[in-house]
Simulated scan of single mutants.
Amino acid sequence: MQSSSLSIGLKDDHHSIFLHGLKLVQYIDFSRNAFEDLFKISTFESQLDSLQSLILEGNLFTSIPLNLDGLSFLNFKNNKIAYLTTKEIDAIEVLFRKSNRTITVLLEGNPLVCTCASLDFVEWLFTTKVKLDSNGSYSCVENDGNITTTNAVYNHLRMMRIRCITTVWLIFSATLFGVLLLFILVGYRYFLDLTLLFQQKK
Results as ranks from 00 to 15, higher is better:
Y188L: 05
E93N: 10
D13A: 01
L51G: 01
N75M: 05
I103C: 04
I165A: 12
G145E: 12
V179I: 11
R163S: 13
M1F: 13
L56K: 04
F44M: 05
L185Y: 02
N151W: 12
P111V: 01
F183W: 02
L60A: 08
I81E: 08
C140E: 02
V94S: 14
A34Y: 04
N79E: 02
A82S: 15
K77H: 13
K11F: 15
C164E: 07
N135W: 03
F44C: 00
D133Y: 07
V130H: 04
L157Y: 06
G109D: 11
N67K: 13
V105C: 10
K23E: 12
Q2Y: 07
T128H: 06
Y27M: 00
F61N: 00
A34D: 14
F198H: 04
S50E: 05
L181P: 00
T150Y: 05
L176Y: 11
Y138I: 10
S5F: 10
S99C: 03
F30C: 02
T104D: 14
T149N: 04
L54D: 01
K98V: 02
A174V: 13
T150N: 04
S53M: 14
K202R: 10
R32G: 01
S99Y: 01
S50K: 10
N59E: 06
F73Y: 12
A117N: 12
N67I: 14
F96K: 13
G70A: 07
L180A: 05
D90C: 02
L106K: 14
K98E: 13
V141K: 13
I165V: 13
Q200S: 12
F44L: 07
I8L: 13
S63L: 03
G21S: 04
L180E: 01
G58Y: 05
A174I: 07
R158P: 01
K98M: 03
G178Y: 03
Y138H: 11
S72E: 13
E36N: 14
S46I: 11
L196V: 08
F198K: 11
T167S: 14
L74T: 06
I81A: 06
T175E: 11
D69P: 05
F76W: 07
S7Q: 04
I64D: 02
F121Q: 02
L95H: 00
S46D: 12
R97F: 13
L60V: 05
L6G: 07
I147M: 08
G145H: 08
C114Q: 07
G58L: 03
V186H: 09
S7G: 01
I28A: 13
S5D: 12
V153P: 02
G178P: 12
K87H: 06
F172R: 03
V186D: 01
A174H: 12
E36S: 15
N143M: 13
K202V: 14
I28D: 03
L197P: 00
S31K: 11
G70R: 06
R189S: 14
L125E: 10
I103K: 09
E57W: 08
T127W: 00
V186R: 08
L106C: 02
D193P: 03
S99Q: 08
K11T: 12
S139L: 15
T85A: 03
G70S: 00
V25I: 15
I8A: 15
A174C: 09
N78H: 07
Y188G: 00
V141Q: 12
H14D: 15
D144L: 00
I171V: 08
E36Q: 15
I89N: 06
F73G: 07
E57A: 15
L106F: 12
T149S: 11
G145W: 11
L74G: 07
G109Q: 09
L107E: 05
L6H: 06
V186N: 04
